[in-house]
Design a protein around this nucleic acid. Structure first.
Length: 117
DNA sequence: ATTTGCTCAGCTC
DNA sequence: GAGCTGAGCAAAT
């Protein structure tokens, strides 16, 4: 991932990555979901890094990290309060989590990539 | 459904 | 620097 600062291109720092991940996460509307992979693609970094960024999240509720799940539909993690809490948050927002899986119709990976690329 | 190998940024020593 | 740890992924089994 590269960023532009003072008209120069430089490698993104950890802070840059976190900032971008948080901003994108906040773009996800209520009742929808995206995968780590989709965010990684828009930023040009690895999915693993996105997960790390979210895990180090300092504002667990302001940053809706519960709307980010595995590409396969599996729930993923939610360190502050555990998977169960994450599931509960999602169902409150209208996402029907079936058997530790979120159905593909809730995903907006394509829209996100199309929007930001 | 489960295992396996790959990945890459942070943390520890 | 070297080695370990993940809120992951994709392919093979």
């Amino acid at each position: 991932m590269l960023v532009i600062e003072d008209s120069r291109i430089r490698k993104a720092t950890w802070n840059d990555i976190r900032e971008c991940v948080y901003i994108i996460t906040q773009l996800i509307p209520i009742g929808r979901v995206v995968s780590y992979k989709a965010i990684a693609k828009t930023l040009g970094i690895s999915p693993r890094s996105v997960a790390i960024a979210l895990s180090k999240n300092e504002k667990p509720i302001v940053i809706p990290c519960h709307r980010v799940v595995h590409a396969s539909g599996k729930i993923g993690g939610y360190t502050p309060h555990g998977q169960e809490f994450k599931k509960r948050l999602l169902s409150i927002e209208g996402v029907d989590v079936k058997d530790h899986r979120v159905p593909k119709e809730y995903f907006m990976d394509n829209e996100l990539v199309e929007l930001l690329l």
